[in-house]
Simulated assay, not measured.
Amino acid sequence: MFGMIRNALFGTTEVWPCRVLSKGEKNDVVYEEREYDGGKFATVELTGKPFDEALREAVLKLLKYVGGSNEQGAGMGMTAPVCTTVFPGDDGSLQQKVKVLLRIPSQFQASPPLPSDESIQIEDREGMAVYSTHFGGYAKEVDYVNYAAKLSSTLGNEATYHKDLYFCNGYDPPMKPYGRRNEVWLLKK
């Protein structure tokens, strides 16, 4: 637990490497097209809980893992964003199923320590291309749903992306009150 707190307060945050392919703005929505590198990720999948509750639970597990709750007792440092895969229903609301991803820091990519918590899996994921928009504040489910709808509407029929899932991303620790960064990513086809 101390490792997790030390990591959050004093550690550096490594940002998931990406390349910006293009930028746009339409109807007051600013967006980017980006390519993200693949790599190894710690993941937690939860079902049967509302988004905000499931996200808090999964993030706590992942923070403990990178904070030292692993086979090596290694405090690995934090990465950003915390990326949550969500699955919208036909009405746009989110199903009670999330998969939260945290990219393993670069120095541990080749051989990540095994998690002590069996609900955490280590996955090797391919790179991906997304359409992204950002917003501030302490993000909740309603904010992500709203910005996903705005981005989708802005892109219209000009872009092809998956409609059965998208990503909700948070970049900041909970104790950061101002200048917060959240993003919604639509996965390109």
Score class of each variant (00 low, 15 high):
I5P: 04
R6C: 02
N7Q: 08
F10L: 11
E14G: 09
E14Q: 15
C18I: 02
V20M: 11
L21T: 11
L21S: 09
S22K: 06
E25G: 10
N27W: 13
D28V: 11
V29T: 15
V29E: 08
G38N: 09
G39A: 00
F41G: 01
A42M: 04
T43G: 02
T43Y: 02
E45C: 13
E45P: 05
E45A: 14
P50K: 01
E53P: 00
A54G: 01
L55V: 00
V59A: 11
V59I: 07
K61D: 04
L62V: 06
L63M: 15
K64I: 02
Y65P: 04
G67A: 01
G67Q: 02
E71N: 08
Q72S: 11
A74I: 08
A74Q: 12
G75L: 02
M76Y: 06
M76G: 05
T79C: 09
P81R: 13
V82L: 06
C83G: 05
C83K: 13
T84Q: 08
F87A: 07
G89Y: 00
G89A: 01
D91T: 07
G92L: 10
S93I: 10
S93M: 09
L94E: 02
Q95R: 12
K97W: 04
L101Q: 14
L102Y: 08
L102F: 11
I104P: 12
P105M: 13
Q109V: 03
A110R: 15
L114T: 11
P115C: 13
S116N: 05
D117C: 09
E118A: 08
E118Y: 06
Q121S: 11
I122P: 10
I122E: 12
I122Q: 09
I122M: 13
E123D: 06
R125E: 10
E126Y: 06
G127L: 00
G127N: 00
M128G: 14
M128T: 14
M128L: 15
S132I: 05
T133C: 05
T133W: 01
H134P: 03
F135Q: 03
K140F: 03
E141N: 01
D143P: 03
Y144G: 02
A148G: 08
K150T: 01
A159P: 06
Y161W: 12
Y161M: 09
D164G: 15
D164E: 15
Y166W: 03
Y166P: 07
N169P: 07
Y171F: 13
D172Y: 02
D172K: 03
P173D: 05
M175D: 09
K176E: 12
Y178F: 14
R180A: 08
R181H: 10
R181Y: 05
R181K: 12
E183Q: 07
V184S: 06
V184R: 08
L187P: 10
K189L: 06
K189M: 06
